[in-house]
């Protein structure tokens, strides 16, 4: 058995991308008697390849790389959504950032929450693609779904898609007025669903759930004003601690008397003075 090294190639500039045709035509390779030991020896690190267009960071984009499957696709995402029930309804807060991986791709055009009808709002975290599905299949049918029915339907949709190995990469939160009682439920990409008085997603689940549970234990019958103030505090904590958060947020709430409202954007008051402090 022979071992070929790149030295048999005269053009060392091609060391970055092995010229397969040259290798294939080598007599030893053709006779399948050779083990190819390919050592990439770039002539310079971190720089442009001589004779080629400078392509930082030198990855090739093929047209078919995108949108081949749900699991392999570019995703813009909304992050933390925080929802709590108060005495007379449910209130939801979410910031206005749409991220593209760790790259903030700007204030999103689609809000992370939407009014479904007069007794339901929906919070969405994850890919924005599911908006259109909910829009087509549920908003335009002229029926007024109650939140529990929408929640139940969404658990089936999410579970069906996970079973097809083509999940919707989302957390969905349904908040509403279910026959005069506040309703709050969520479903994730696996179809795992539950109802509770507090639901937080993403980073908020880690830093805000304990804070909110403690708060709700002390004051289980919050007024709307108290709930708004609490969520403002939550969004501030989130803005300080979560790298993928933003200082503008929306508030959506369903008050059993006042009905559905989506308000904002609100500006978080923040101060980084402590960072400049000298000790």
């Amino acid at each position: 058995m022979a071992i070929l090294t790149p030295s048999f190639l005269d053009d060392t500039d091609h060391a970055r991308s092995p010229p397969y045709s040259i290798l294939k035509s080598h007599p030893l390779v053709q006779k399948e008697k050779c083990l190819i030991l390919w050592i990439v020896l770039p002539c310079r690190h971190n720089g442009p390849t001589p004779g080629l267009l400078y392509n930082f960071p030198a990855t090739q984009i093929k047209p078919n790389d995108y949108f081949t499957h749900t699991q392999v696709r570019l995703i813009t995402t909304a992050t933390s959504v925080v929802v709590i029930t108060y005495k007379n309804g449910v209130i939801m807060a979410g910031d206005l950032l749409a991220s593209y991986g760790s790259l903030a791709s700007g204030v999103q055009k689609l809000p992370g929450m939407l009014k479904v009808n007069d007794n339901t709002i929906l919070g969405l975290v994850g890919t924005m693609q599911i908006f259109s599905i909910i829009d087509e299949e549920c908003l335009d049918d002229g029926l007024s779904l109650k939140p529990k029915s929408l929640y139940c339907w969404l658990t089936r949709i999410m579970y069906q898609r996970r079973s097809k190995f083509d999940p919707f990469w989302n957390n969905i939160i349904v908040a509403g007025n279910q026959e005069g009682k506040p309703f709050l439920g969520t479903v994730d990409k696996l179809g795992t669903a539950y109802t509770d008085k507090i639901i937080c997603t993403c980073f908020g689940a880690h830093i805000l759930t304990p804070l909110l549970r403690d708060h709700l234990d002390r004051n289980p019958n919050m007024s709307l004003e108290e709930a708004k103030a609490l969520l403002e505090k939550c969004m501030e904590v989130l803005y300080y601690r979560d790298a993928r958060s933003y200082d503008k947020y929306l508030l959506g709430y369903i008050d059993l008397d006042a009905g559905v409202k989506i308000e904002g954007p609100f500006q978080i008051k923040h101060s980084w003075e402590i960072a400049h402090k000298e000790y």
């Binding site: 970055r16 092995p18 390919w38 050592i39 990439v40 020896l41 770039p42 690190h45 971190n46 930082f56 960071p57 030198a58 990855t59 984009i61 790389d65 995108y66 699991q71 392999v72 696709r73 570019l74 995703i75 991986g101 760790s102 790259l103 996970r162 079973s163 190995f165 999940p167 990469w169 990409k189 696996l190």
Partner: peptide, 23 residues
């Protein structure tokens, strides 16, 4: 094959593969 080029995940234009486990 060895990859001598440094990898910058944040600047990658290649699609990100997400692992999906249904369980």
């Amino acid at each position: 094959m060895f990859e001598a080029r440094p990898h910058y995940p944040d600047y990658s234009t290649a699609p990100v593969q997400h692992q999906f486990s249904p369980y």
